[in-house]
Amino acid sequence: MSENLAIFTENLNLWYGSFQALKNINLSIHQGNITALIGPSGCGKSTFLRCLNRINERISSVRVSGAIRLFGHDIYGQEVTLEELRKDVGMVFQRPNPLPLSIYENVMFGYTTHYARRSYTQTELDVLVESSLKKVHLWEKLKDNLHDSALGLQLEAQQKLCIARLLPLKPKLILLDEPCSALDPTGTSSIEELLLELKGEYSIVIVTHNMAQARRVSYESIFMLMGEIIEQGSTAEMFLTPQNEKTAQYIEGRFG
């Protein structure tokens, strides 16, 4: 049954050294939706997100137990390679992190690192770049400057570019770690619109500190506190009638 689930975790625990950052996380997240992870700073949202593409493992003190299955596949399985996992599980960070390359090269970077040079033509690349940039609404603005440095773009465009560069890899899951916290309200709302357009085709998990944002974009919300999941449910219901006292207090802004 876990095949229909984008994310399924069972008794997931994670320690940074002796500090336990995730405690018995049992989760099921369906495909094709936007799921918001909310909770105060240090509650383990980002840590959880970073488990899903195994980026956490670069820190040597991290220890993980339990199971994570994405689309029915155990990501700790013997045959799993980090390169392929990260191809299917794209990630967007708080600070836009375009590479110090041209806009074109940024969009193509993932694709060209994953496929042998003989397997694609320049025209195919051009088409991919165009369609990826169109999806994030950057094409019209940037089509004449594709070979300019991506670092010269404004933050909002940089963040969109960071989303666009995932698309040629056809990821199944897109993880966003507070993608709008460096952006102004206009930038935020245009990223949100973008996410709503992308859902369905991709499963999306977004960590956010912005309650209004969680309400606007997500179908389901997960409230975390001190490394535990306190409540999971449809966003509309959770924000209207939270089941847990702590959730209610957090949503109302009584702590954060």
Partner: peptide, 21 residues
């Protein structure tokens, strides 16, 4: 370091990150 991490997050190998970025 963020440039290397951006590469790794796209599934690039260490060498690809070094070579291209």
């Amino acid at each position: 370091r963020q440039f290397r991490e951006a590469c790794w997050n796209l599934g690039a190998t260490r060498w690809q990150a070094i070579r291209y970025v």
